[in-house]
């Protein structure tokens, strides 16, 4: 079991309020991603749940039990750190066994669990090595192994993939998702990368300046962003925003159109512009179009269309997919 509830959690460092007031309900077995720009408080929130920081006010409940004042060692959670935080003086085996040793488990049982974890994570042949002799991906696996052996109520991941190279990151992303399918244990995953958030999460918490902007499933967030911040943060490339008279036509303070929701034409359309940079990815092409009076827009089109610098194009937003926001940025 591992449901996690935050009730009016507040965290301040001296005068600085990092998290003004957050309440969240995370259900047992859910994969929840905290995502947001750097400094939004997502790591602090995770550390509050872990017990590595204490709340200034508010309550944290684990399976309905108040753990606000419990030290991390007593919360039964496991954490995977960005730096992996492996014990450099211990072999891989001892690293994985450490939490079990701390729980005073009999040696035979420890061996069994370590072997099982090592097999699950393909670490069998590295068990007697020191962490420094391992590659980044292998270290990551050891860190995960150390987390799973103790069968925690929930896993906490603090940007675990940010030190890996791009190819490995995609792999590990899949492995962690796979692991979640297998274990069905609650996982909370912190990242600044919205692609990781979208691909891995059951539900995403979008954080900005210590506030929850939206909490929902990835597609919810993509299709029905609660406000301009979420709309801009989720989706890649970013949504294009237009203010002023053009937005007023739609009875909104500002409107947003995703790059993939345009009809592109060389002859006619709603907005006229000239192509600046065309980024050709093969499968897709991203056009950066300087429009007349509406600023720079990013358009996603299929990879077969070729445009070059200076070409004149016409853009027509899909009328069913125009997002409208009021003056405060709230979705209309």
């Amino acid at each position: 079991m591992g449901s996690i509830t935050l009730e009016h959690v507040n965290k301040s460092f001296g005068e600085v309020e990092i998290i003004p007031d957050i309440s969240l309900d995370i259900e047992d077995g859910e994969f929840v991603v905290f995502v947001g720009p750097s400094g939004c408080g997502k790591s602090t929130l995770l550390r509050l749940i872990a017990g590595l920081e204490d709340t200034t006010s508010g309550k944290i409940l684990l399976d309905g039990q108040d753990v606000t004042d419990a030290p991390p060692a007593r919360r039964g959670l496991a954490m995977v750190f960005q730096s992996y935080a492996l014990y450099p003086h211990m072999s891989v085996r001892d690293n994985i066994a450490f939490p079990l040793k701390m729980a005073k488990m009999p040696q035979a049982e420890i061996d069994k669990k370590v072997d099982y974890a090592a097999r699950t994570l393909n670490l069998g042949s590295y068990l007697d090595r020191r962490p420094r002799a391992l590659s980044g991906g292998q270290r990551q696996r050891v860190a995960i192994g150390r987390a799973i052996v103790r069968e925690p109520k929930a896993f906490l991941f603090d940007e675990p993939l940010s030190n890996l190279d791009a190819a490995l990151r995609v792999n590990m992303r899949l492995e962690i998702t796979e692991l979640h399918q297998q274990l069905k244990t609650t996982m909370i995953y912190v990242t600044h990368d919205q692609v990781e958030a979208m691909t891995m999460a059951d539900r995403i918490v979008v954080l900005n300046a210590g506030n929850v902007e939206q909490f929902g499933s990835p597609l919810d967030l993509y299709k029905k962003p609660a406000n301009r911040f979420v709309a801009g943060f989720i989706g890649s490339p970013k949504m294009n925003f237009v203010d002023g008279p053009e937005a007023a036509k739609h009875n909104a303070h500002s409107i947003g159109v995703r790059p993939e929701h345009f009809k592109l034409s060389t002859t006619e359309g709603a907005w006229k512009g000239t192509v600046g940079v065309a980024e050709q990815l093969g499968s897709d092409t991203f056009l950066h179009v300087q429009t007349d009076g509406l600023g720079l827009m990013t358009i996603r089109t299929d990879g077969d269309q070729t445009f070059s610098h200076g070409d004149v194009v016409y853009l027509t937003p899909d009328p069913t997919r125009i997002y409208k926001f009021d003056a405060a940025g709230k979705a209309l």
Binding site: A50, P71, L77, A78, A85, Y87, A103
Partner: peptide, 13 residues
């Protein structure tokens, strides 16, 4: 790195 000590705390130490 303080991470490593925090990892130990999370591991129940």
């Amino acid at each position: 790195p303080v991470d490593i000590l925090e990892a130990a705390r999370m591991d129940g130490a």
